[in-house]
Nucleic acid binder design. Structure first.
Lengths: 195, 195, 195, 195
DNA sequence: CATGAATGAGCTTTCATTCAT
DNA sequence: TATGAATGAAAGCTCATTCAT
């Protein structure tokens, strides 16, 4: 094959990261081989190992990028402005970010069961996400807009509320109607399910 | 090793199924080898293949048993008796069933990414579960106790509500307080999160 | 399964031998499993091992029977009667015997490569056959009806002359026209191929 | 073990092909493992699978090479020169080619019974060989030097005439005297066996 | 830096044989 | 004598990783 042009390490790494993201998203961690990644990137096997310690390392790196992408869309609540609107806006952006092509599958579906280190990476991601939700809930409680109760548990429930519809849609190859989902979530958060 | 005593095929199969369930729960599908399963069962490799076509077949069989176990705890609502109590009771039994040692990990964590056939098995499980939830919601709507809206989406949200706290707890090796969880879910379903 | 009725050992052995012959003929030594043989015979696995030391032993026994069948059709030449007719008659019986359903495949196709002991069994068969042909040729030379020359080599050539058309026909699933083959062989032996 | 030096794929493949040929010739298809081949070649298991899809694929490749080797020694008859001499020369070269160490065993002894695909490969080989012989016979008939009659059958007989002495010699670990064999075949073709 | 041939531990699966019932 | 569940050595194959060029 034609030799890929030499490239600043960071660029090459970024290229590989993107390729790895696509590959993992397409087939999941276990079914994705290093061969898939380097084919996607158009470089040789050895090049991959110049930039990552191995397949798992690459996966963790992909995970990190995706986490950052997802988290970045959540903007802190400005208490001097109407709060509910900000919450709904955050929620909608979050759902949309999660639904972006690769994220859902990589983060939610294929990530568990790699090995202890892989699980740890996942825990880190979920830990960060849940931490943010908890903080938001606590703030809400202090503001009197969130019911009292175990915020940790509430946070996990909320995570599931957002995640599961996306995961299920992925599982069936459907696309999610973000607007409808957000509306549904809004209603759930506001009044529950049962009259 | 001492030769395992002969046994009626159905018994041995059941024993292997249990062993496989424990093994998959302990290390997940991908990290579990047939070697682990037969070690857990205390039989030789060949014996495993007398009862299952292979590792994936065993996994599917485990999945099937667990599905049945989980589903069986949900009892139909008796409309001539107070409904809410029945709903909460069902919910509590469901949460407890899911929390049983092996179920959560096998069903929720390690199951995706095996191969197309494996994914199909999962889809079947989730499909059946969601179908039940949807039916319950529709009944609820007809009885006027469930808000209007897309039941399919509602069902997925509810699945997430139940599943995620259990998954997260597993991820951290925590045990879930079923009572607390059910109470929280109850409140969520009744009035939402936000005042 | 219903227990096969107890049976005098020789009968059961004969039954198994026949079943083994059919099985080996159908799929060849390597692709035939003990499972095939016992299924064909309608007995349990263990029964097979009560009558044969193992798969190879059964194969050797089948070989022996077939050898005897084939060899028995060749009748000694009566020098007081017209010789050529007897030769042609022997030849025709031989070809027909070889063409009998199972013989060709078992003897000629699937027999080599089992292991040293198996090869030895084959050598025995071929040795016996060639010995007979050599003797016939020597007699012929003494009677002045066979050309001089290395009888051992001549014998092998003749074996090939008979065997190959049958083997090839088997390979293509064709049936051999014994009459035509014998006629062709007759002409070859009498005058060769080239004018 | 010392790492085998990198090598252009075609070279390595050729080396493996040769090693496989030796291995198959030494022990036959069924008793030869991939382990034997890679040991013979002095490379690791994985290297083998970089070049062949599996054991059977390697066998088919060996078969192909050997076919080509054998076929290539037969040169077309030049009708403007004395024909019989050319026929004998071809015959002698053919016999010698077949007797080359590996060819006879691989082609003639161990090849049947692999599986349907393997048998098909063999049929191809024999088909090609027989086709050539048939063509030669037809030409001979047109030139009036070959007796009339079924060329297909004649071709098979001739194949047996050449093949069997070589096979038998192999079976006994003898070496064939090519000169003597060709002389014998010559006489057989010219005048038959019986006066 | 990039390459890709080479590696080999580890995995799944098969099947002739054994032996307690 | 007949049974068939149990066995486990042995085989084929994969793929993340290494390293000489």
């Amino acid at each position: 094959m034609a030799r890929a042009p030499a490239m600043p390490p960071d660029d090459r790494r970024a290229q590989l990261l993107a390729a790895a993201g696509r590959a993992f998203a397409a087939k999941g961690y276990h079914r994705t081989g290093v061969a898939d990644i380097v084919a996607e990137a158009g470089v040789a096997r050895g090049t991959f190992y110049r930039h990552f310690e191995g397949k798992r390392d690459a996966f963790k790196a992909v995970l990190k990028v995706m986490m950052a992408d997802v988290v970045s869309v959540v903007v802190p609540i400005d208490v001097s402005a109407p709060i509910p609107d900000q919450v709904w806006a955050n929620l909608e952006r979050l759902v949309r970010a999660i639904m972006v092509e690769d994220v859902a599958r990589v983060l939610f579906s294929e990530a568990v069961g790699i090995d202890e280190e892989g699980d740890e990476a996942l825990r880190e991601f979920y830990g960060a996400a849940l931490q943010r939700i908890e903080t938001a809930l606590q703030t809400g409680q202090q503001l009197g807009v969130v019911y009292e109760g175990d915020v940790k548990l509430k946070a996990r429930v909320l995570l599931g509320v957002i995640k599961e519809p996306v995961v299920q849609a992925k599982l069936y190859g459907e696309t999610v109607d973000a607007g409808a989902l957000v509306r549904e979530l809004t209603l759930l958060l506001r009044r529950g399910v049962l009259k």
